[in-house]
């Protein structure tokens, strides 16, 4: 992957991540819940997807020269991270997500947690 393609991919990821700002507060409120029976959920994983809606396989990104730290350094992730911090939540990039048993390769996602 050329530097230009890498930059394009990072820009795409940055936008995808920044979009999460619009929904993270609502999603966390739903998962945290006001009722005790909802407490089992202690984090939300946002599985990032390619433009064709397939999950982003971490290995493929690494092969393209994109490491989790590169994603953490995007403007989109910084904006999400700061937004989460204002809500006393934590956001981080995680490239070890196995969305289902059918998908053997770990995928890229954003973890939001920090509530009890």
């Amino acid at each position: 992957m050329s530097e230009e393609q890498k930059a394009e991919q990072l820009a795409y990821l940055s936008e995808e991540i920044e979009r999460l700002i619009d929904r993270v507060a609502t999603d966390v409120r739903e998962q945290r819940g006001e009722h005790e029976e909802q407490r089992a959920s202690s984090f939300v994983i946002y599985l990032l997807r390619n433009s064709d809606k397939s999950p982003m396989v971490s290995l493929r990104l690494r092969e393209s020269g994109i490491a989790p730290d590169d994603i953490s350094g995007t403007d989109g992730f910084s904006a999400l991270k700061h937004y989460c911090e204002r809500l006393s939540l934590h956001a981080r990039v995680e490239d070890t997500i196995r969305p289902s048993r059918e998908i053997a390769d770990p995928c890229l996602g954003i973890i939001v947690d920090g509530w009890q």
């Binding site: 998962q31 959920s41 946002y46 599985l47 997807r49």
Partner: peptide, 10 residues
């Protein structure tokens, strides 16, 4: 051991 919720980013 708590679980979480997997959502699509988009």
């Amino acid at each position: 051991f708590r679980g979480g919720t997997l959502m699509f980013g988009s």
